[in-house]
Amino acid sequence: MDNIQTRATLDEHLKGIMDDIIRLSSKVDTAIDKSINAFAACDVELAQEVIAEDVHINTKRFELEEHCLHIMVTQQPVAVDLRLIVATMNIVTELERIGDYAAGIAKLAVRVEMVPKRDIPNAIYQLTSQCRDMLRRAMVAYTEHDANLAYDVADNDDSLDTQHRMLFHKLVGETRDASQSTDYLLSVLFVAHNIERIGDRATNIAERVIFMASGKLTELNVTYTDDK
């Protein structure tokens, strides 16, 4: 029996959804990068590209969900296979929401086009880099079925939250300075908020990876968004 590959069809399907979700996460990661660049440079064309790409991300999300449902109906997966599919269905929703955050930043880039340009704070770039790193590592943890790496990802979210809070207070302080454009500062605040939320979503993905790898349902870094 050892030499017979008994679930070749199921394995092929599972590989398919894993490949698809990795590709989708890559699209989402690119969307984050492009949206920040579009916002920083007030690049409307690039922003429109991100907004258009978000439609594709949404479509891809439903396609992946359909595929997961198909596998459940036709293959009746259990145990580790079932956890992989359930986790994938959760993760694809998180990725779709991250895509929405990126699209939200891109829409802002279109709106602030007329506002006098100025450099965005370095902290925004740092936040972005950190949340993209969290996202990428969460997806590596998914591919590797690595719960420990998923826990590490969640640990990074605390630092992201702290940096976001510091930037928030700094920007709120700057709004009191009459020489600063309030519209622009509010836009930066919104961008920072979206990036911070992306970090939360990456943490959610990490939670799903932990479930997938170990069967443990756990809430990491409980955050209270309304208080931020």
Binding site: P77, V78, A79, V80, L82, R83, S214, K216
Partner: peptide, 14 residues
Amino acid sequence: FTRPSLQRTEDYVT
């Protein structure tokens, strides 16, 4: 059927 403790069980049920 969701998180068996042993690999042998997991191999069988899957």
